[in-house]
Simulated assay, not measured.
Amino acid sequence: MADEMVLVLTRLEDSTADMVIGHLNARDAQVVRFDPGVDFPAAAEFSTWFTDQPRSRLITTSRDIDLNQVRAVYYRRPTPYLSDSSSHVERFAGTQARFGVGGVLAALPCPYVSHPWAIAAAEYKPVQLTTARRVGFDVPATLITNRVDDAHAFATKHGPIIYKPLRATPCTDPNGEPATIWTTQVEPGELDGTISQTAHLFQVRIDKVADLRVTVIGEQVFCVRIDSDLLDWRQDYDRLSYTVIEPPPGLADHCHTYLEDLGLRFGAFDFAFTNDDVPVFLECNPNGQWGWLEEVTGLPISAAVADLLLEKPT
C-alpha cells in the first residue's frame, strides 16, 4: 500500500492517534501527520492553485506533499487555530489560517473520518437529541431552558432530574483550580434564579443498571457494558468494570442510521442500560475518546479506524 497517503490531523502528543498510525505504518501506508493550528505557519508552508489544473502543496520540515494525493483524512482533535488569549493580530492571523488552510483541507476530494464540519454540527446536543429520536432511539424527556418556572414544572412532572452542560467548557473551582462539571442530580430547591442567566439542559434521571459505550467505525460496532455505582461514569475510571457484549437488538442499525443522517463515519455513543435491557440514548460524541477502551478490553478499535481510512472507494 505504498501509494496510500493518509493525512492525520492531530496534536503532536495524541496516544490515540498514535495507535491508528501504528496500524497504518504496519500496512505500508504513507502517513502525513499535521497539526495545522500549531504547525502553520511556524513549521509549514502551503499553496493552493485554483486554475485550469488545480493543485495543493503542503511543505513541512520533513515533507513536500501533493495534497491531491491524499486518499483519506483522519480528523483527530487538532489544536484550534485560535486560543482564548490571542491578541487582535493573532486573532486575525488565526482566522485567516482557519479559513485558508482549514478551508483547503476541508475541500480535499477524499473521505474523512470524520469531516470537521460534520463533527462540529453533530456536537450540538439539540441536534443529537432530535436525530436520536428520529432514527428510533429511546430518548429521555429533556428540557433546555433559561426559564425558572419551566424548570420547576419539568422537575415536578419528570423528577428526579439531572443537569449536564450543553457542551464541556473549561471552568475553575472556587480556589481557581481547573474543574469539570459532571452530570449531576438536581433537587427542586436548587432550581433558582441563576437558571435565567443562560441555557441549561435538564433531563429525567434514568433508572439504570449499567451504561453502554458503543463505538461505531464505518460498519464495525464495538459494544461495551460499563458497570459502576456512578451517575456519570467518567468521574472515576478506577470504579468501572467493563464487559464486551453484543449490541442489543436493533441498536447497531439505529447507530448507523444516526451517523449517516449526520454525515459521520465515527461515533462514540453513550446509553443508560435499564433493568429491562433497554438502552436509552444519552449522547453521541462525534470525535470521542476510545483509546482507553481498547487498552482495557482488547477490542481492535484502532485497527478498525485504519481499515476505514484504507477502504477502497466503491
Rank of each mutant, 00 (worst) to 15 (best):
A2S: 14
E4M: 10
E4N: 11
E4A: 14
M5P: 00
M5I: 13
V8E: 03
R11F: 01
T16G: 13
T16S: 13
V20T: 08
D28N: 15
A29Q: 05
R33W: 03
D39T: 06
F40K: 01
A42I: 04
A44D: 05
F46G: 05
T48S: 12
P54S: 09
R57L: 14
L58M: 05
S62L: 09
R63K: 13
D64K: 12
I65Q: 04
D66S: 11
D66I: 10
N68I: 01
R71M: 08
Y75P: 00
R76H: 13
F92T: 11
F92M: 13
Q96H: 10
G100E: 06
H115F: 10
A118L: 00
I119Y: 03
A132V: 07
R133F: 08
V139W: 09
A141N: 10
I144C: 08
R147G: 00
V148D: 01
D150C: 01
A151D: 02
H152M: 10
F154T: 02
T156W: 01
H158R: 14
H158E: 02
L166V: 02
P170G: 10
T172P: 00
P178A: 08
T183S: 11
T183A: 06
V186C: 01
T194C: 04
I195D: 04
S196A: 15
T198M: 07
Q203K: 05
V204E: 15
R205F: 01
R213T: 02
I217A: 13
I217R: 08
L230A: 06
Y242C: 01
V244Y: 08
P247Y: 09
A252T: 12
Y258K: 01
Y258T: 01
Y258V: 07
D261R: 14
D261W: 10
F266A: 01
D270T: 08
T274R: 04
C284P: 00
P286H: 05
N287T: 07
Q289H: 14
W292Q: 03
L299S: 07
S302E: 12
L308T: 05
